[in-house]
Design a protein around this nucleic acid. Structure first.
Lengths: 195, 195
DNA sequence: CTTCTATCTGAACATTTGTTCAGATACGGT
DNA sequence: ACCGTATCTGAACAAATGTTCAGATAGAAG
């Protein structure tokens, strides 16, 4: 049992982050000890410090990589030039991306207050980038007369908040398929912003 | 400095809960120690146990009282029999009630995982009551043909999630007045559910 | 003024916390 | 077969944790 020592382990790093991710999501950053993480990996607590300078960095790295993945994946989605189509694309993307990463999303929204000020600022920048990309769609639609939105900033946050809500209840294999969920949310988003 | 002992203190209890509320909201339940709460009140840690059997009960009481206040306040709002008016009333109520209690709301949504299973179940029941009241409005409107909603359960959660989003960014004295915010959200909610 | 009691202090407790480090170990290269 | 080094163990550290409790204290009641 446990890992033998001396063994080359390019896999220990990922396993540590994976265990930390699940435990942080489940019990919260402050409630999880380094020893719990180590136990999950099958290693002593001291060994974790070959892979992270401290506990805070472990959390920060998880959050930053998640936000970077999100931005990169969204950038890779070639968005339509038609605002309505672009918004539809965003809704589908956002729902699916987030449902595939429940733990990362949970942490990214719940553990912001456990970041040091500098780390917090960096994560906030990334999130604002994402919001700005969404707001651009709404502004384009507003300018073209396709959308009728009182305040695009509010609408951006409202749409994202509404979509994020799906994470609190959706379970694969439940009453509704992913396509049905996506359709239901898209119907509401579309009507909420359309003239 | 500090409180003198022996003084009658019907005010110590409320002050403890008030300090716990603010600290839990700011740093999270697990990250706040009983000594920090005591210090905020100006008392030694041991004195807290005259007012709560343990830390868990302190959190639970804050959450339960908040949910009960929410349900009671909503019940006191005499709702219109017209679904659209009822929904409008709910939107205004929900936004204002929640913006008046940022700390309570934060805790009620973030600290669920730090409740014991029994306590969690009780809070969940209260929240479901609230959701059911909202869903009733949507079903009434659906039945009368006023609303066009694919799934009233999803729509309920979507509307609440969207409105809750206001808490993450609204600050009194900011760019928009409370009335403007309420109007903007009501516009979106109305269009999202209206036929 | 004396007595009573609710309230608070201050110390103690066993555990757990994040982190460090000297030494043990086992793999890759020679 | 041996060495070098990346990796892990196991013990140690001071500090902090939730909780308990005997005793001090001050206001209320008589």
């Amino acid at each position: 049992m446990a890992r033998t020592q001396g063994s080359h382990s390019d896999i220990t790093g990922p396993r540590i982050r994976s265990a930390a991710l699940r435990l942080f999501a489940r019990h919260g950053y402050a409630a999880v000890s380094m020893r719990q993480i180590a136990k999950e990996v099958g290693v002593q607590a001291g060994a974790l410090y070959n892979y992270t300078p401290d506990k805070q960095s472990l959390l920060f790295r998880l959050m930053r990589e998640h936000m970077q993945d999100l931005l990169q994946a969204y950038a890779a989605l070639n968005s339509s030039s038609d605002p309505q189509e672009a918004l539809r694309g965003f809704v589908g993307f956002h729902i699916r991306f987030h449902l595939e990463r429940p733990d990362e999303v949970f942490i990214a929204y719940m553990e912001l207050r456990n970041l040091t000020p500098e780390n917090f600022a960096e994560i906030e920048d990334l999130r604002r980038s994402y919001e700005n990309a969404v707001e651009k769609i709404l502004r384009d639609g507003q300018r073209s007369g396709r959308f009728a939105i009182a305040d695009t900033k509010i609408a951006t946050l409202a749409v994202i908040a509404m979509l994020n809500g799906v994470m609190t209840w959706y379970r694969a294999g439940g009453r509704l398929s992913l396509d049905e969920v996506e359709q239901a949310y898209w119907d509401m988003v579309r009507r909420a912003v359309t003239a």
